[in-house]
């Protein structure tokens, strides 16, 4: 076989493999779109789920997912920001920094089910928080932290060092320089990172089934008192999310229209994540333009 023949064959082979992958992708997306979209209706999005009869919706699950996401970001963003600032601005080049980086790497490589079980053990059981949105949000924070720390650190790192020097040379404290100069420049990148991580949090289920729980008690959307047990804002109530709902109706098999509910819910999940992805890009670009004065 001459080199040119083998070159042709190899190229053909690569094209074939790529073709197969493209087919798989098309099938996947097609399946989600075709089987899911017909089930999305106003009724589906606004009615509560029903376990034993057909025709249930995902209103509470959708709300729970969003509420959980917001709580998770409220807890994880400040922590991640502080840690990222430490790593990019304060950490020296020594063994201690190496240890911290290893710890974060370990955290990011832990299977989400293990993180969820840890949350179950510590918060649900030891701290008697029960299956609750708060337990879930804390578990998701553990899951989200390493990713967020890394993306924020990357954004901070991308800010030229000359900006830090400019701040220092004016007698500004490092902290003031970071807050007033570095952070605003890094903001588009940080926001993009947050939104992308939001997509991941939104679709996570394994870390939640034993922390936020698998039940969706009926919610009273007119009760704005977060301490009341029926209030939709109560962080101590169990909360099944959209992703957990898909898993549950499929594994328990008592809901007659499990397949169509899951198809619709999957499509909703994908749409929300798509919105996050595009939103991240749009916001990043927009802010970048604004910041550099259109230059």
């Amino acid at each position: 076989m001459t080199p040119h023949q083998s070159d042709r064959i190899a190229t053909q082979l690569i094209n074939l493999l790529v073709g197969i992958v493209v087919l798989i992708l098309l099938f996947l997306l097609g399946d989600i779109v075709l089987s899911g979209f017909p089930h999305i209706s106003w009724h589906f999005l606004t009615s509560p789920s029903s376990s034993f009869s057909a025709g249930g919706g995902v209103r509470d699950q959708l709300f729970n997912s969003l509420y959980l996401l917001v709580l998770t970001l409220i807890i994880s963003f400040p922590l991640a920001l502080g840690s990222a600032i430490y790593l990019s601005e304060y950490a020296g080049d020594n063994w201690f920094t190496g240890l911290i980086r290893t710890a974060i790497e370990v955290l990011s490589s832990l299977p989400s089910v293990v993180v969820g079980l840890f949350g179950y053990l510590l918060f649900v059981i030891e701290f008697h928080m029960g299956f609750s949105i708060l337990s879930g949000a804390i578990a998701l924070t553990f899951f989200n932290l390493p990713l967020l720390v890394r993306s924020i650190e990357g954004s901070l790192h991308a800010v030229p060092n000359s900006q830090r020097e400019a701040g220092s040379a004016l007698g500004l404290s490092n902290w003031r320089t970071i807050r007033g100069i570095i952070l605003p420049v890094a903001l588009p990148g940080i926001l993009t990172g947050i939104i992308l991580s939001a997509g991941r949090v939104f679709g996570e289920a394994a870390a939640l089934i034993y922390t936020a729980g698998q039940s969706a008690p009926l919610l009273d959307y007119s009760n704005w008192n977060p301490t009341s047990s029926s209030s939709f804002l109560n962080p101590m109530r169990p909360a099944e999310t959209l992703a957990v709902h898909i898993w549950k109706v499929n594994t328990e098999g008592v809901t007659p229209d499990a397949v169509s509910i899951s198809a619709g819910a999957s499509a909703v999940l994908i749409i929300v994540i798509l919105i996050f992805n595009f939103g991240a890009r749009a916001i990043g670009n927009q802010m970048y333009k604004k910041m550099t004065g259109g230059k």
């Binding site: 992308l196 679709g203 992703a243 898909i246 499929n250 999957s266 994540i273």
Partner: peptide
């Protein structure tokens, strides 16, 4: 990039 972001329950469901 989109596929990396698809939740695992969706893969499981399919």
């Amino acid at each position: 990039e989109l596929l990396v972001g698809i939740p695992s329950v969706v893969y499981g469901f399919i």
